[in-house]
């Protein structure tokens, strides 16, 4: 399988605190096309920092993040915006939809930034909302959706532009059990059907139980990297 992301000697130290915080220490990992990976570890272990760095939202102090043969750690901010928009999908913990846009507009948003043709954009947005079971909520604004529905829209938004991989930062943290399982079913299906690489940071055992690969971070370093055969 093709390598989608590769990190080499990745370190991140925050120095704007009273004592320097080593959030990541010499992380060397590879993620293959279509993997469903959970990054786990206690609070402060560096899960979110790791996602931020491989997602190009934050710069590492040392090391490389190679995506598509490009080290994004050295990329300028203006290029990173484009790169993120074209290669990476994000799902955040707190839904984070644009409240003034409808579900279909939220899903279309990134494609719009990519300047996709309007017809294709609309079709894809509707298709994605159908896939996450919200075909009857196309023109509903986020405030009228439940937490679980909002997070499904966020997943549809992340996947609609067909990114190389999706980073999800504790996507089930605010969901009840039913909504969480529903979301995980959808993400697992999309992972399989669209062969999209999914990388989660999570504390949630429900996510961990679904992941084909579980990487445990402790104090910013990789403690365990386990693969599971799950369908």
């Amino acid at each position: 399988m093709q390598t989608v992301i590769k990190t080499e000697g990745l370190s991140k130290t925050y120095t704007n605190t009273a004592v320097p915080v080593h959030a990541l220490r010499d992380v060397n990992l590879e993620f293959k096309q279509g993997e469903f990976t959970a990054i786990v570890g206690p609070s402060g272990s560096g899960k979110t920092t790791f996602l931020n760095v491989i997602g190009g939202l934050d710069k590492p102090t040392e090391g490389k993040v190679v995506i598509d043969d490009i080290d994004i750690a050295t990329m300028k901010e203006s290029k990173l915006f484009d790169f993120r928009m074209r290669h990476i999908g994000f799902v955040f913990q707190a839904y984070n939809l644009i409240p003034v846009l409808t579900a279909v507009e939220n899903v279309s948003f990134i494609m719009l930034l990519q300047k996709r043709p309007k017809k294709e954009m609309e079709q894809r947005a509707k298709e994605m909302l159908e896939q996450v079971g919200l075909s009857d909520k196309l023109n509903t604004r986020p405030a009228q959706l439940s937490g679980g529905q909002q997070q499904r829209v966020a997943v549809a938004r992340a996947l609609a532009s067909r990114p190389d991989f999706v980073l999800a930062d504790e996507p089930t943290a605010n969901l009840d059990t039913e909504s969480a399982f529903n979301l995980l079913d959808i993400m697992a299906r999309l992972n399989k059907e669209e062969n999209i690489t999914l990388i989660f940071s999570t504390h949630d055992q429900r996510v961990i139980d679904r992941a084909k690969r579980v990487i445990t971070l402790v104090d910013g370093a990789v403690d365990k990297d386990e693969h599971f055969d799950r369908n």
Partner: peptide
């Protein structure tokens, strides 16, 4: 602020 941060995160350029 959070919403603006998200918009930037998902690829909306600062200029836009």
């Amino acid at each position: 602020l959070r919403e603006l941060g998200i918009l930037l995160s998902i690829g909306l350029k600062r200029g836009k």
